[in-house]
Design a protein around this nucleic acid. Structure first.
Length: 568
RNA sequence: GCGCCCGUAGCUCAGGGGAUAGAGCGAUUGCCUCCGGAGCAAUAGGCCGUAGGUUCGAAUCCUACCGGGCGUACCA
């Protein structure tokens, strides 16, 4: 990456200056090499001189001057100028830029990748909604975030597995089974209390529909069964039905999980009781009020957490600890990322404490909290009532807005920001979402290259690297060269939303270039062969970058798009 | 009360120690005989919630306060 190469050069210059006595021999501080805020300041700028000023007891400008004159000869830097309060503004050599752009095409498909991960194994677990109701719109955020993050990490040299955790055990499932049974009995013509969905049950219309079809297909089966057995079987089958729907929703969003992990599997293998024993052996278990507790306060958590309730059933956290032990110990992931909604924030400290308690470095577990999605229709807030139905289903949103716009929209904000999702605007978003702007730009590059083939100018060759001098060319070239740095930073910070902004920027620069710089000759505008070749190279490189970034986001990169005829 | 996130243009949001704070949408105005107008260019629109502090430098870090969201269960 250009940035890292420049940082090396600057460090080298500092060492040279220190050896020759121009600068005092103090330790080099951290410093930045970044695109300057204003393009006329060059390709990159560094603040090293300012950072060094205090320790060196010299004026930043003087240090900067020394660094510039100490810079070793190299193939990259055309000019390095001291500016402002002590910045060094660096402009790269045109030949270097040309070579880099040409190499993007050779690396197409993997240009933008890096090897931060070094082949280490990482698991990304996300969505993991209870199999007791349809996925609601907000799950689209976790899905888009998790899928893009996974792509980003894979592009950064990690070996990535995507996982969906299915809570198919526990007390919620019992309430689910009871809810189905009540609807089923009603569908079978019963009246009376047995047809009433329990207060903490599920009231969604899909359960009534499911029970309706069940009543027709299995007849009296569950009327004849002991109630406890009926509830258990209905819960199990209902959950499977729901998981299949979740899977279909994810597929509709283009999100594919490697593993659908069942909580029940942990119970079947006695790992849930085993984890209580392990915690007890390590001295993190106490008993009071007839229940068994995880002494997480001993590890800095704000309260203890129940492992076995006084009625003898395990608490929700118990299987979660066993589950995470399975990730690290049984399956041996180096790192694990969980993506949770902000309403689970209280669970973070507990989960980390539990890993520490069983001897797993809690830093191997990263929990990303995304803020919640506020659904609205215009000014009216659509209440997200968790267990009383009439939730906006994710499948409805995908159908209305489209998969690509959904993925892009949910990723267009930082996970730290609460997100407004206006259903009234959803259709309008479908037409005005910036995703189409980016896709259109990709289609435009494809179209230009197609036309170049037809006009037999696609393979013009010229000696030496392509040369770019027009401001619109330079701006685009810079963005493409910085692309791998954006990918690397997004991966380091686990912030895939940066990609959506980068994609829009590249698309915008391409369109400005397209307007100002003729690529192919026309009757009225001849273009020299060398310029055609250079510009086609730039178009192809842009296409490679747009295709790559859209791939990371999880949005298709179409060769062509149907023209929208705008009414006057 | 305590904990986490947020407060930046009319709206939705980027930027999270560095030079003159940005984008999309919305508003106004130009630009299609020529590579795709789902485009381009320009204009208007900001005490970066408030008040202190740290720093050569603060939208960015710290403290307090104000406002919004979410947690704070033997629910998950």
């Amino acid at each position: 990456m250009a940035r890292e190469a420049l940082a090396d050069l600057i460090r080298h210059a500092a060492t040279v200056a220190q050896t020759s006595g121009l600068l005092p021999k103090v330790a080099l501080p951290e410093f930045s090499v970044e695109p300057p805020s204003r393009p006329e300041h060059g390709d990159y700028a560094t603040n090293l001189a300012m950072r060094l000023a205090r320790a060196a007891r010299m004026a930043p400008n003087a240090i900067a001057q020394i660094l510039v004159s100490s810079m070793p000869p190299n193939d990259m830097v055309a000019t390095a100028e001291v500016a402002g309060a002590g910045f060094i503004n660096i402009t790269l050599k045109p030949e270097y830029l040309g070579h880099r752009i040409a190499s993007i095409i050779e690396e197409a498909g993997h240009y933008g990748n890096n090897n931060q991960g070094g082949g280490r194994r990482i698991q990304v677990e996300f969505v993991s909604a209870n199999p007791t109701e349809r996925l609601h719109a907000a799950s689209g955020r976790a899905a888009s975030l998790g899928a893009a993050l996974s792509n980003l990490l894979r592009a950064s040299g990690w070996q990535v597995e995507l996982e969906y955790y299915v809570n198919d055990a526990g007390s919620r499932l019992a309430a689910f089974g009871q809810s189905i049974l009540a609807r089923y009995l009603a569908a079978r013509g019963h009246v009376g209390p047995e047809t009433e969905v329990p207060k903490d049950g599920y009231h969604g219309t899909f359960i009534a529909e499911y029970a309706q079809t069940l009543a027709a297909s299995v007849g009296e089966r569950y009327e004849l069964m002991p109630m406890a057995d009926a509830v258990a079987e209905l819960a199990r089958n209902g959950a499977e039905h729901m998981v299949a729907l979740h899977r279909a929703d994810m597929e509709a969003l283009g999100v594919h999980f490697d593993v659908w992990f069942r909580e029940q599997a942990l119970h079947d293998r006695n790992e849930v009781t085993a984890i209580v024993d392990e915690l007890r052996n390590r001295g993190f278990v106490s008993e009071r009020d007839g229940a068994v507790w995880f002494s997480s306060t001993a590890l800095g958590d704000d309260r203890d957490n129940v492992l076995i309730r006084s009625n003898g059933t395990p608490g929700y956290m118990t299987s979660d600890i066993a589950y995470h032990r399975d990730k690290f110990v049984t399956r041996g992931f180096d790192q694990v990322i969980d993506i949770w909604g902000a309403d689970h924030q209280g669970h973070v400290g507990r989960m980390k404490a539990s890993m520490q308690a069983i001897g797993i470095d809690p830093d191997r577990l990263t929990i990303i909290l995304h803020q919640l999605v506020v659904l609205r229709r215009g000014d009216e807030i659509v209440k997200l009532s968790k267990r009383t139905g009439n939730i906006i289903a994710l499948s409805d949103v995908i159908e209305e807005v489209g998969k690509d716009a959904c993925r892009f929209f949910f990723l267009a904000r930082s996970s730290d920001s609460q997100m407004d999702f206006d259903l009234e605007l959803a259709t309008r978003e479908a037409a005005e979402n910036p995703v189409y702007y980016v896709q259109y730009s990709h289609a435009r590059t494809a179209s230009i290259m197609q036309l170049a083939e037809e006009r037999r100018v696609a393979h013009l060759t010229v000696d030496g690297p392509p040369s770019y001098s027009h401001p619109a060319e330079i701006a685009l070239v810079r963005a493409l060269i910085r692309y791998p740095e954006v990918v690397a930073d997004a991966a380091t910070n686990l912030e895939p939303h940066r990609l959506t902004f980068l994609a829009q920027e590249v698309a915008s620069l391409l369109n400005a270039f397209y307007r100002d710089c003729r690529v192919l000759p026309s009757d009225r505008q001849p273009v020299e062969d060398a310029v055609i070749a250079a510009r086609l190279t730039l178009v192809a490189a842009t296409r490679a970058v747009l295709a790559h970034v859209l791939g990371l986001i999880g949005v298709s990169a179409p060769e062509r798009m149907d023209r929208l005829d705008r009414p006057e």
